[in-house]
């Protein structure tokens, strides 16, 4: 196993209103089996030992399901593979590589520190309609509401969104259309989501616009960057749902 030596250029910013800059670090002994975040851990251990401030980045599950991690690696959200940064492995890089690491860049995702951005705008979009209203309590009878196969497939495909924000980071307009569409399409496809179908669509789109995300110019970068493969057609569907909701008044 050959260990790699890398040059990392990482965005360092001490706080929300502090100026930031790309800072260069040399890192030795990186094994191809390491995940990208383990590589950053290695750097952070060294920085701590040297009495320097470690690089702040978000992470939690480290298995590609929580959506916490996220950074732009060499211009690509989550890096060169179609997966999350925590599931990206150093075997995707080679010895001597220069790797640029930056936070998600969007007006609606202000930098908190280094690579950590505030994604609460997503929570507010979800809060505007990304739910169904149902009585809680005992679980309903499984066969009470029949879901057609096609609707179930569509809902599952879109329910995969982990809210990581890579779509916003990759979009040249910083648009949150793919994220919003994933939830609108997921819930609107299901009978459980039907009662709030129109209001959900209207309110979630209004919340998305209010957060200052850009509009969709159908570039398609979001769907390319999405680690969960939410299709660009979800945006098409949300557009259809939105126009339908407005027609219904």
């Amino acid at each position: 196993m050959t260990l790699m030596k890398l040059t990392l250029r990482i965005w360092r910013q001490a706080g929300p209103d502090e100026p930031g800059a790309m800072t260069t670090y040399e890192l030795d002994g990186v094994s191809p089996e390491m995940s990208f975040l383990e590589m950053l851990d290695t750097l952070n251990e060294r920085l701590s030992a040297e009495g320097e401030e470690p690089v702040a980045f978000d992470h939690d599950c480290r298995e590609g399901i929580c959506g916490s991690c996220g950074m732009v690696i060499n211009g690509d959200a989550h890096g060169p593979e179609r997966t999350t940064a925590c599931q990206l492995h150093m075997r995707s890089f080679s010895d001597g590589d220069v790797i640029d690491i930056e936070p998600w860049r969007a007006g609606a995702f202000p930098v908190i520190k280094d690579l950590v951005v505030d994604r609460s705008a997503f929570d507010r979009i979800i809060g505007a309609g990304g739910y169904i209203t149902a009585p809680t309590g005992s679980a309903p009878e499984a066969h009470a509401t029949a879901v057609p196969k096609e609707a179930a497939d569509l809902a599952f495909e879109n329910a995969e969104c982990i809210g990581c924000g890579a779509c916003v980071a990759a979009c040249p307009n910083g648009s949150a259309m793919l994220f919003t569409a994933a939830k609108v399409v997921h819930l609107n496809a299901l009978p459980q989501g039907a009662p709030e179908r129109e209001s959900r669509t209207r309110e979630m789109v209004a919340a998305m616009d209010a957060e200052g995300f850009g509009g969709c110019t159908n570039v398609g970068e979001c769907a390319t960057a999405c680690p969960k493969g939410i299709p660009l057609f979800s945006i098409t569907r949300m557009n259809r749902e939105y126009l339908r909701a407005l027609r219904k008044g």
Partner: peptide, 9 residues
């Protein structure tokens, strides 16, 4: 306005 800071890379 939605992308006030550009990517270095």
């Amino acid at each position: 306005r939605a992308r006030p800071v550009k990517y270095a890379h």
